[in-house]
Design a binder for these strands. Structure first.
Lengths: 134, 134
DNA sequence: ATGAATATATGCATTACGCATATATGTTAT
DNA sequence: ATAACATATATGCGTAATGCATATATTCAT
């Protein structure tokens, strides 16, 4: 039984149902180039509260995205404070983003299906109770 | 920086952004008691295609759910074929399901925010191009 | 007896995180 | 001058939820 194609839990071989951070960063970098610390602030504007993610994870995700050729980075010196590693999205990264957005759309439909199913059951229970005079 | 409360990626200590299988099984078991093999079929009716999940994962998830006291199981002999381990949802499982549905609702909102943001950027690009006479 | 269908389970690997911690550089207050 | 703070990046360790492959057992039809 069972071979995987475009799974709910998995796309290809990876369990990438959770790639919110990566998708969000790609989206921000599609808007404009940026470095890690600024991206953290931009995520906040974007709807993430600063308690909701880990800054270490952000940097690690950016390094991984560069390894995957979704972004490239260069060191920017000269401003105030320490050097900044500035990231730019690549064409490959833009394509990945488009695909990930499609994945989010199908994920959203699945979630809606579950929620609807739950609420239909709840309604049914209520009308059962009404039928029984509860 | 950063302390975790009700993360996008995480609820408490666990990275449970992906718990579709568990939620789906709880939902099915809230409807009626069932055993693994039947649940696999019912998931199919439910919108999962049989290629989209792993039957081993299903059984492993059910055992974990029992460990967490979300379900209880008993062996049912006497029918045709091998013995079946029949699962029933507990009150604790029903509470967990209600909470997980709430989690799905907020997750859905987050997904919508990302999709909207992506599509807004695409529209903006188009009108930029129009402004530039492209 | 052989094979198919039914039924449950486990070992190994991977991914995307969280948390804690380390390191370094400017900037400001004392 | 030094201590504290804000800025900035990175890594080690651990975990949850999954996939894939494989093992085991029972019943039924041929």
């Amino acid at each position: 039984m069972m071979k995987n194609e475009e799974s709910l839990f998995c796309k290809g071989k990876a369990p990438n149902i959770k790639r919110f951070m990566e998708i969000s960063l790609l989206l921000l970098l599609a808007q404009e180039e940026s470095h890690g610390y600024t991206l953290a602030e931009r995520l906040t504007d974007f709807g993430f509260s600063s308690e909701e993610f880990n800054i270490g994870t952000l940097y690690r995700t950016l390094r991984k995205m560069e390894k995957d050729n979704y972004v490239i980075s260069k060191w920017q010196e000269g401003g105030q404070g320490p050097k900044k590693r500035v990231y730019q999205i690549t064409e490959s990264g833009k394509n990945a983003l488009a695909q990930l957005i499609e994945m989010l759309k199908s994920r959203k439909k699945r979630i809606e299906k579950l929620i609807d199913s739950y609420e239909y059951e709840s309604l049914k229970d209520k009308s059962d109770n009404i039928m029984k005079g509860k």
